[in-house]
Amino acid sequence: MIVTKLEELHQLPEYKEALVELLFQLADDDFIIAYRGSEWLGLAPHIEEDVAFSSITQDTMGHAAMYYQLLEDIGMGRADDLAHGRGANERRNAILLEEVNGPGHYLYEPQYDWAFAVVRNYFYTQAKKVRIDSLKNCSYEPLAQVAVKVNMELYYHLMHWRTWFVQLVNAGGEARERMRKAVEKVFDDFAGVLSLGEKGEKMVECGLIDSEEVLKARWLQAVKPVFEQTNLELPSEFHMKRGNGRNGEHTADLIEALATLSEVYRMDPLAIW
C-alpha cells in the first residue's frame, strides 16, 4: 500500500496514528540534537570546527522543520507550535539526544565535553542514516520524498563525525581514554535511539519503516569497520538506562531545554516574530 494523498490518509486512522508517532520521533530527535548543537556554537575546540559544526546543526534543524511541516500538513498544528509549544511528556525524542552537552550552562561556566559530542553525534548520525535509507521506501510518499532530500546531506555529516571519532580514538593517551568513556556513556542510552516505541510494530505493519531489529543490525554493520579500525569493542546490546523517550519518558534536561528554547515564543505564541 502506498499513501500519497491526505484524503487517503484521513481514511486510515490506525495508519495515520502510527505515521504521526513516527514523524514526531523523527522531528523531535533532529530538533533536540540540533538545539544541543546550537548551544555549542562559539565553544568548539577550534574556530574552523565551530563553523563546520554549525552547518551540520543548521542542516539538522532544517530536517526537523521538514518533519514538523509534514505534521502540519496532516493537520497536527503549526510547525512552529509543534517545535516550541509541546511539553516534555509529549516529546518523542530519544533520551540520549536531550542530555546536556556537559556541566554548566551555554552562557555560564560551560564545561562541554567534546568527546561526548563526537560520539553522540557520530552514533546518532549513523542511526539516522540507517533510518533514512529505510524511509526512502516508506509507504507514506511525502515522507519517502523528504527522506530522499535528508539523505543528501547525511554523507557530509557522517564523514565529519566519523573523521573526528577515528582521529580522537586513534590519537591514544588522554584523548582515547576520554573517547572510550564517552562511548560507554552513549551506549547506556543508545537503545533509545534505535527504538521505535510502543507503536513500532504498527509502523512496520503499515510499511512505514523497517523493524527495530533490522535497523539495529544495519547500524552494527555500518560501524563495525570503524570499531575495528580504532580497536574498540563493539557490544551487541545497548541500554535505555533512563527510560524510553519514544514513550514520553524524559529527564530534567529536556524540561530545562524546552524552557530555554521556547522562552521568547512563550511571551506571545500568537504574535508574529
Binding site: S38, G42, D50, G62, A65, Y68, D80, E263, V264, W273
Partner: peptide, 29 residues
C-alpha cells in the same frame, strides 16, 4: 548574539540567527 540562538522564537528565526552567528565565527576565522 549566541545567547539568543537557542532561544529564537521560531524555527526559521533559529536557523537564521544560527547562520548569522556562524558567519561571525567564520569572519573571525
Amino acid at each position: 548574539e549566541k545567547e539568543w540562538v537557542p532561544k529564537a522564537p521560531t524555527l526559521r528565526r533559529k536557523l537564521g540567527i544560527m547562520a548569522k552567528v556562524q558567519d561571525e565565527m567564520g569572519h573571525g576565522q
